[in-house]
């Protein structure tokens, strides 16, 4: 299908931003001017270079411990994207397999899995994260676990819906006639036919994961300090909102731009690649 001009601009802009972010995340050690975890206390709370009192040494200023904000921002990109990729891979695989199983097998398996999605869908994520952090302590693993527990639901629901449609196709019946096992039918026939929708969904979810991840880190139950992370950077700047606004603003802007890019790209892709998957929003 042909993309309209504005859609093209959106897709290209979104893609460029995402590519830049990916490059930043991968080459963070080469790009970042300073070590993100080590600060110079004598240099603390320096404003960005365009502000009075700022200097070229720290383009985006320094935080309360004298760490370079730009370097932390760069490494924070790495954290956010890594979490997003791992969580989506885990949740995507588990959710899709559960959804396909539910849709293809039907019966009580379907009932149980769908009840689980209902439960997980309306479960208070942040509370779950708090409890897990309480038990396990804040950690990288903890975030991945919590986010995966939330994310799998959408994959499961979508994969189930698609599997229900595909189950009725003649090629599935013919696969059975050929003697294929149920597992082979799910993996070789249903999964490949659901895959494109799943991939679009994954794009749509990156933004959501970044929001979740930064919220967890903001509350102190995500990436443990001193590792750099956008959410905890915002949190760290909170008490200095009167005097050093940039501490919260800089990572905040980074979050919004990143999430927006992924959402716009995902929405546009959905619209054109797989309109049936369009979220109820329709835009």
């Amino acid at each position: 299908m042909q993309l309209s001009l504005s859609a093209k601009i959106i897709v290209v802009t979104g893609l460029v931003i995402i590519l830049v972010l990916a490059v930043i995340a991968i080459f963070a050690p080469l790009i970042a001017p300073y070590d993100p975890t080590i600060g110079e206390l004598s240099e603390r709370l320096k404003p960005p270079c365009w502000q009075e009192g700022g200097s070229r040494d720290h383009i985006l200023g320094t935080d309360t411990l004298g760490r370079d904000v730009l370097s932390r921002l760069i490494y924070g990109t790495r954290t956010s994207l890594t979490v997003a990729v791992i969580a989506i891979l885990i949740a995507g695989s588990i959710g899709s397999l559960l959804g396909i199983t539910a849709g293809y097998l039907g019966g009580w398996v379907d009932t149980v899995i769908m009840r689980l999605t209902d439960l997980a869908f309306s479960f208070p994520t942040i509370l779950l994260a708090l409890v897990l952090a309480f038990v396990l302590g804040p950690s990288f693993f903890n975030i991945i676990l919590v986010i995966s527990l939330v994310l799998w639901v959408e994959y499961a629901r979508m994969a189930r819906g698609e599997a229900l449609k595909i189950r009725g196709m003649d090629y599935v019946a013919l696969a059975q006639v050929a003697g294929c096992s149920k597992i082979r039918i799910m993996l070789r026939h249903i999964l490949p036919n659901v895959a494109s929708s799943l991939i679009v969904l994954a794009t749509l979810q990156v933004g959501m994961v970044i929001v979740l991840e930064s919220s967890l880190s903001f509350l102190g139950v995500g990436v443990p300090p001193p590792d750099p992370d956008w959410g905890s950077m915002v949190a760290g700047g909170r008490s200095y909102i009167f005097s050093a606004w940039w501490l919260s603003a800089v990572p905040g802007v980074a979050i919004v731009i990143t999430v927006l890019s992924f959402n716009l790209l995902g929405d546009t892709l959905t619209e054109y690649i797989n309109p049936s998957l369009r979220r109820q929003g329709g835009w």
């Binding site: 196709m169 003649d170 090629y171 019946a173 013919l174 026939h189 036919n193 895959a195």
Partner: peptide, 11 residues
């Protein structure tokens, strides 16, 4: 079967 469109897995 009747409908070859549905009989052949497009992937």
């Amino acid at each position: 079967f009747q409908n070859p469109l549905s009989s052949l897995d497009p992937r």
